[in-house]
């Protein structure tokens, strides 16, 4: 029983991270209709910038919390520059092109970011500067009386950084929701999400909105990168994992922020349970390993067959 709880907890934590990547997706998709394939890479890229800057600073003898904060500022600045560049170089010339063309452009962006990232920071995995950023490390063992095997006390291991991740993610989502709901730019964003043309006609600057949205997605990416990097390490291997955000989107719908969160948690827990129960059933517990790599997509697939519009989407009425 404690093993199951541990698995669910692990799934929950992974789910929070999927949800964060999906959130970045949703932000951009809502505001610009672009299916931003590069979101996963933006996560790695921003985290690499953070760690890489800190490394450079520590070589100069500048270490500890202040240096980490400076690195954070640098990483944020880089994400802002990236947002501006994306808007100028990619989105602006491609406005009014079909969706698939913009989608492909973000593919190009993905490759570009991988190349640039590896050229500047090297291809080796890096260690996230968790402690220097003032984030908690270490873990707590939670004793669950009577839930272990044979009625003994069960143990569940909680990493402090995971708890911090869940809290920070909640704060960030609440912040974003407030920003969307109550600020001028937030209102403009929602207007753009509904209709580009109508938004333009009332004097909203699309270009400005796009920069804001991509920058916001960049911030979300940086936070995701820090959390994820603290759990494993920072490398481009993460970008394949980031594809897991796609089934999350199918579950939650491409435009729904609550959908991204709920979907992320379902996928996170679902795939961990799949690994636990399905893998031994399919090919035995050793050969069956890695069910995680596709199970999330099957959940999404099964879901699509019965509710194509996603958890929170409206029923689609086709018109002609």
């Amino acid at each position: 029983m404690d093993f199951l709880i541990q698995t669910v907890w692990e799934g929950l934590v992974a789910g929070v991270l999927y949800a964060l990547i999906a959130l970045g997706f949703v932000l951009i998709f809502k505001a610009s209709g672009v299916f931003n394939f590069a979101q996963g890479i933006m996560v790695v890229f921003s985290a690499l910038t953070l760690v890489g800057t800190y490394e450079k600073l520590s070589q100069l003898g500048f270490k500890g919390f202040p240096a980490a904060m400076l690195s954070l500022v640098v990483a944020l600045a880089v994400m802002f520059v990236l947002a501006v560049l994306v808007e100028r170089v990619v989105l602006r010339p491609l406005v009014n092109q079909p969706d698939i063309i913009l989608f492909m452009a973000t593919f190009g962006l993905t490759y570009l970011l991988i190349g640039v990232g590896e050229t500047i920071f090297g291809g080796n995995p890096k260690i996230m500067i968790t402690k220097e950023l003032g984030l908690p490390t270490g873990s707590t063992e939670l004793v669950l009386p009577g839930l272990g095997p044979d009625g003994r006390n069960g143990l569940v291991l909680l990493q402090h950084i995971d708890i911090a991740a869940a809290i920070i993610a909640s704060i960030m989502i609440a912040g974003l929701a407030t920003f969307f709901q109550y600020t001028r730019i937030g209102r403009a964003l929602r207007a753009v999400a509904d209709s580009h043309k109508a938004a333009l006609s009332v004097g909203i600057s699309l270009n400005q909105i796009w920069v804001v949205v991509w920058f916001t997605a960049g911030i979300v990416a940086l936070v995701t990168g820090i959390m994820w990097g603290a759990r494993s390490d920072v490398s481009f291997g993460l970008s394949t994992v980031a594809l897991k955000a796609l089934p999350v989107l199918i579950l939650g719908g491409f435009t729904s922020i609550p959908g991204a969160i709920v979907g992320g948690l379902i996928i996170g827990i679902g795939e961990k349970l799949g690994e636990l129960y399905l893998a031994p059933m399919l090919l035995g517990s050793t050969m069956g390993r890695g069910v995680e790599s596709w199970f999330a997509f099957f959940i999404a697939l099964a879901f699509v067959m019965f509710r194509p519009q996603g958890l929170f989407g409206d029923k689609i009425i086709e018109r002609i």
Binding site: L112, G115, V116
Partner: peptide, 8 residues
């Protein structure tokens, strides 16, 4: 880098 830029 080149592939990415060329695609865009």
């Amino acid at each position: 880098i080149v592939t990415g830029s060329l695609i865009i």
